[in-house]
Design a protein around this nucleic acid. Structure first.
Lengths: 272, 272
DNA sequence: CAAATAGTGTCTCTAAGACAATATCAC
DNA sequence: GTGATATTGTCTTAGAGACACTATTTG
C-alpha cells in the first residue's frame, strides 16, 4: 500500500481529458439620458457590454467579454479580472447565472463557460476593447415575450441592431433556460447566456437585491425606483415603492439641487 | 488573413493550461421512520449520501459522490450519471449550488468542482459504493447556528459521527457561503459545499420549490408538510400550510388506509 | 404661477398566522 | 369510546396596491 505522499507523486493529471474553462461577463448598467425639458428627471435604459470579435471563430460577431481561467485564480477572481480589464471598474458583486458546458458550444474545442452577471453604475464606466476585440460598446436591451414561449432579444447601439430569438426551455429557482432559435450577430451561445442572465437579474430586482449596485453611494428614491422599473419593465406607484424600500435604505441629510422641481433627499443603502 | 477553417486547424488547445472538472453530488432524502405507537405518523429526518474514500488523498475520509467530466457530456449530464451510478435513481432535477475553483482545494492538482444538489424519494434508493469508495451511507443531518455566525454541521449514521464547524462568509440570493474552520472527517472542502447546499435547499423549500421531489407521485398533505418542516427546521399550523399549498397541488380520489386514524386524501403536484 | 417631482396619509383587499371546531378511522 | 390525524372555518393583523393630497423648487 502506497503512502499518501507516494500516491500524489505518481498521480498524473494527464490521465484524464480536461476542458478549457472561461469566465464570461454579462455586465449590466443603466444609462440615464437627459430629456427634452429641463424639468424632467432623466430616463433609464438597461444596457449590456459587448465586444466585437477581432479573430476567428465568429470574427466580427458580437460577444460577451471574458477570458480563460488561469491556474492561480478562482473563477470569481477570473471574472473580476475580466471586468476590470474591460471597464476599469472593480464591481461590487458578481452573480453566477449559469454554466455552459455543451461539448460542441465552441468550434475551437472543449470549452466550458462560467457566466457571471455584474452590475456597474453608469458613472465611471470606461469600456475599452481588449486584445481580442476590435470594439467594446454598450448596447440597449429589449427582451420581450412574443407568443408561445418565444422571446426576442434586441440589442441596439446607435444604428447597430442585433436581434436574436429564443425559446423558453424551463424555469427553476427564478432562472429561465432558453434554446436558441436564431443568434443574429451574437457569437457562440451568448444569446442564451444573455437571456438567462436577464431573467436572473429580473428575479433579483423583484426582491430588491442588487438594484443598489446600479447607483452611486448616495441616491434618490426616485432613481432607485427608476432602476427597478427599468429592469422589471413595469411601473409602480412611488408611494408604495417608498413604503416597501424604506427598511432597506438609510436617509442622509443631503439633498439634490437645481432640478427645476422640489429637491429630493439622498439615501444610502442600509447595511444589515 | 486566414480563413476560419485554417484558423481552427491551427488552433491548439494545449496553448493554455487546463483544469480537471468534476461534478459533485449533494444527494438529499428524507427518511421516514416508524414511531412507537401504531397510531403515529412517521417522523422525517433529512439525510445526505456520503462515500468513504478508498484511496488517497483523504483515504478513509467521507466525501460527496462525484466524478470527472467527460468530453462527450455537459456537467449536468455528468451529474445525472454520477447520481445514477451511486444510487440507481434518475433524479427529477438537479440544482447547481456552487462552483469550487480554489486552485489549492485538491492536493492532486487543479480540479474544479461543480456542486449539484439533488433530491430523492426515500423509496427505491439503493446506495452502492462505486469504484473509488469502500462504503456509501446515508447520514442524518444537523446544521445549527451557534453564536456569532458560527455553524456546526453534524452528520451521523448509527455510531459514525462527523462534526464540522464553519463560519458564515456572505449571503446572497438565498445562498450562504462559508469558510471551513474544521472539516472533521470530511474530505477536501466538502464541508462547506454541504453547508452551502443546505442553505440553498432551505431557501428553495421556503418557496415550496422542489419539496415535491422528496415524495412519491402521490402523497398526503401531512407528508408534504413534514418535508417542509424537516428541511426548514420549523413547525407550522397544518390549516395554514394547506391554504398556502392548495394552489400547487391537485387532489386525487384516493385515500390512505390502515393508519389507525382518519384516512388522508392523496394529492399530486399540479403541473403549471 | 406653472410644471414637474418629492413626500405623506388613508382606504381597500388579500394573504398569513392563530385558533377553534368538526370528521373519520383502527383498535 | 379513545387516541390519533384530517379537514374546514373564522378572527385578527400585516402588507400590497390604488389614490388623493400636500410640499417644494426653478424658470
Amino acid at each position: 500500500m502506497d503512502s499518501e505522499k507516494e500516491f500524489l507523486q505518481k498521480y498524473n493529471m494527464d490521465d484524464y481529458e480536461r476542458p478549457s474553462v472561461t469566465s464570461d461577463i454579462i455586465a449590466f448598467t443603466i444609462k440615464f439620458t437627459e430629456e427634452d425639458s429641463y424639468r424632467h428627471n432623466p430616463d433609464g435604459a438597461l444596457q449590456i457590454l459587448l465586444i466585437k470579435r477581432k479573430g476567428y471563430p465568429f470574427k466580427d460577431h458580437w460577444a460577451l467579454p471574458g477570458g480563460f481561467l488561469q491556474s492561480n485564480e478562482t473563477i470569481e477572481e477570473c471574472a473580476y479580472r475580466e471586468v476590470f480589464e474591460e471597464t476599469g471598474v472593480k464591481p461590487a458583486s458578481l452573480m453566477l447565472t449559469g454554466i455552459y458546458s455543451d461539448p460542441n458550444r465552441d468550434p475551437r474545442g472543449w470549452i466550458i463557460s462560467n457566466a457571471f452577471a455584474t452590475i456597474l453604475s453608469d458613472k465611471d464606466i470606461n469600456a475599452t476593447a481588449g486584445d481580442d476585440a476590435s470594439e467594446a460598446l454598450w448596447f440597449n436591451i429589449a427582451f420581450n415575450c412574443d407568443t408561445d414561449n418565444t422571446y426576442t432579444l434586441t440589442l441596439t447601439h446607435d444604428d447597430i441592431v442585433i436581434t436574436a430569438t429564443l425559446k423558453e426551455k424551463e424555469t427553476k429557482f427564478g432562472k429561465t433556460d432558453f434554446v436558441i432559435q436564431n443568434s443574429g450577430e451574437l457569437a457562440f451561445d451568448h444569446a442564451k447566456i444573455i437571456a438567462t442572465a436577464l431573467t436572473v437579474l429580473r428575479s433579483s430586482a423583484e426582491k430588491f437585491e442588487l438594484i443598489f449596485d446600479f447607483l452611486p453611494e448616495k441616491f434618490t428614491l426616485s432613481a432607485l425606483q427608476q432602476v427597478q422599473e427599468t429592469i422589471m419593465n413595469i411601473s409602480v406607484l412611488s408611494a408604495n415603492f417608498r413604503r416597501k424600500i424604506s427598511s432597506l435604505v438609510q436617509e442622509t441629510d443631503e439633498y439634490t439641487t437645481g432640478a427645476g422641481h422640489r429637491p429630493a433627499k439622498l439615501f444610502t443603502k442600509k447595511h444589515l
